[in-house]
Computed example of a mutant assay.
Amino acid sequence: MNSITSGAIGWLIIWAWLALGIKLLLDHYRKRTGARRKAEQRAEFKTRRDARDDKRPTMIEELEGRLDAARRLAVRGEDEAQRNNALYAQLLMEDDLGRYAEGPWPYNIDQDHRDILLAHTRRDAAEALANSRTLLQEVRRLTSTLDELNRVAFFVLAAYLLWAWYKSGFALWWN
C-alpha cells in the first residue's frame, strides 16, 4: 500500500479521536446546562408555591421530583420510558382526585352519567395501554436492529483499517 493511503488512514484515526473528544466535551457542557436549568426550574416552582395560598405541590412539581428520584434509584435494565409513563399516569390520576394544588375542578354530574363516563374512560385507557405496549415493542425492535447495525459497521470498519494497516507493512501513519 502506498504512503498516501497510509497517511489517509492515519489522519482518519486522528480525526475519529478528535471527534470523540469534541463529543465528550459537548456532552459535559450539556449536562452542566441541564443541571442549571433544573435548578432554575426548582427555584421557579418554589416561588410559585410561596405565592399561592395552597402550599401543596402542583402535579408538575411532583412529577419532576418523582422522575428525578426514579432516575437516581434506577435499576440496570429497567425500562425507563415505561417507568416514566407509569409515574405520569399515577400522578395524573391523583391530580384528577384533587391531591395537588391547582388541579381540575370537580365534576358536578349525576351517578348515571358518572358510571357511563367511567366505563368509557376504562375502555379508552385499555385501548391506550394496548397501543402503548405495541409501540414500545416496535421501538425496542427498531433499537435493537439499529444497535446491531452499528456493531456490524464498527467491526467492518475496524477490519478494513487493520487490513489496510497490514497491507501497508505495519507502517507508522504519523511519519
Score class of each variant (00 low, 15 high):
R71N: 15
L162I: 12
T143I: 04
L117V: 09
S6A: 12
E102D: 15
L172E: 00
R151D: 12
D110I: 02
V156K: 10
L149Y: 06
R76L: 13
D68H: 07
R133L: 15
A8E: 02
K38T: 09
H113L: 05
H120V: 07
L161N: 13
A158L: 15
H28T: 07
N2K: 03
I116V: 06
L136K: 06
W11S: 01
L142I: 10
K46S: 09
R48E: 09
Y100G: 08
W163D: 01
G65E: 10
L149G: 13
T143H: 14
L67C: 10
L136M: 10
Q90H: 08
L149V: 05
A171S: 14
R71Q: 14
P106F: 05
E94V: 00
P57N: 02
A119I: 10
L24F: 12
R76H: 15
T5Q: 13
E94H: 05
K38H: 11
R56C: 06
I4C: 02
Y29T: 12
I4T: 12
Q82C: 04
L24D: 06
R71E: 15
A158Y: 10
Q90T: 13
E138V: 05
N150F: 11
H120W: 08
L20Q: 05
L25E: 07
N175K: 02
E62I: 01
V75R: 14
R30I: 08
G65D: 13
I13V: 09
V156S: 09
N150Y: 07
A86L: 13
Y88I: 10
Q137T: 05
R30M: 08
W105A: 11
A171D: 10
G169M: 01
A16C: 02
A130V: 02
D110Q: 04
R32P: 05
I13H: 01
A153K: 11
W11V: 04
A39H: 00
T33P: 01
W165I: 04
L91R: 00
N2G: 15
R42I: 10
L12M: 12
L136N: 06
G77K: 01
G77V: 00
L67F: 02
A39C: 06
K167D: 12
K55C: 00
A128K: 14
A39L: 05
T58E: 13
K38Q: 10
F154Q: 02
W173C: 01
E40D: 10
R140V: 07
D147H: 11
Y166R: 04
D112Y: 01
K38I: 01
T47W: 11
A74G: 07
T58M: 12
A19I: 13
A119C: 01
D54N: 13
M1E: 07
P104I: 02
V75A: 14
P106Y: 03
Q82L: 14
Q41E: 07
A89T: 08
D50F: 03
E78T: 12
L117T: 12
H120E: 15
R71C: 09
G169S: 06
L18E: 03
K23Y: 10
E102L: 11
I116H: 11
